[in-house]
Design a protein around this nucleic acid. Sequence first.
DNA 1: AATGCACATGAGAATGATTTGCAAGAAGGC
DNA 2: GCCTTCTTGCAAATCATTCTCATGTGCATT
Lengths: 147, 147
Amino acid sequence: MGNKAPMTKADKIAILEDALRERGVRITRQRQAILTVLADAADHPDANELLVRASAIDPTVSLSTVYRTLTVLEENGVVQRLSFDGVPAKFETTDAPHHDHIIDVDTGDVIEFRSDKIEKLQAEIAAELGYEIIHHRLDLYARRKAR
Amino acid sequence: MGNKAPMTKADKIAILEDALRERGVRITRQRQAILTVLADAADHPDANELLVRASAIDPTVSLSTVYRTLTVLEENGVVQRLSFDGVPAKFETTDAPHHDHIIDVDTGDVIEFRSDKIEKLQAEIAAELGYEIIHHRLDLYARRKAR
DNA sequence: AATGCACATGAGAATGATTTGCAAGAAGGC
DNA sequence: GCCTTCTTGCAAATCATTCTCATGTGCATT
């Protein structure tokens, strides 16, 4: 049989689980549920939203476990925590390509963009100051130009 | 007599107070103390630190008032609130020239930097997408490099 | 300088997100 | 299957921040 079948989401999760196990993280029912929800999420859910979604898969998941699992996953580089002003922290998987945001100040629209040049400059600046970037956040608040 | 005497910090604060009064903000003893502390601060104090410093000027200042005053000052464009990951919000006056921040993920320290190259790149990217930048926010979460 | 009143204050309680202590439960190497 | 160690759920604890409310005060007006 051919072995070129495309990797399914289930495969991805299984690979992720193995990698975590490798690092000494036990794969529990609750963690599987949370991982599945994170892998499915196209948005940036907060802890509470993750609880709701994970509960649909495994009703025994508690909010404490969501938080504890997110901490573990963050420490293992699987998810990234996004802290915005005032609102609860949001989370996203780190497998999506990195991008920054332009926020349209008039409409509230959010546009994603990515610039390797900027990424490179950031790294240079940090290096000059003796730092190594873990992650960053760049938000451009802008207005549509009149034509 | 000459009228070219340089503006002292006291002058600056007086001007600020007048501007605020103009906008219907009452200048109380507590607000004066907090304004003075903010004008003096070369770093990025959080609410608690501001309380400590302002108390040295006016011992009647309370933490509630620090928070309330910061909100008022933010609404009136005098200070900017910096909400970083995990740590309490930090504040800085808006009269300083624009700069971005590096946040030390281990200590919570905040370092300012400024790069015209990055500013220019941002403008270019926004322009390409048909936008004009109003303001932006760039936070680099970084870790001190081992030497 | 005295008056009035809307706004500001201090003290502490309330809130909301996140963390933690503890006893019971389960993962995974043997 | 067993045992050790890590995880979990629950509830209580924390922490930053906001709110409540009775009292105090800036300042426009006299």
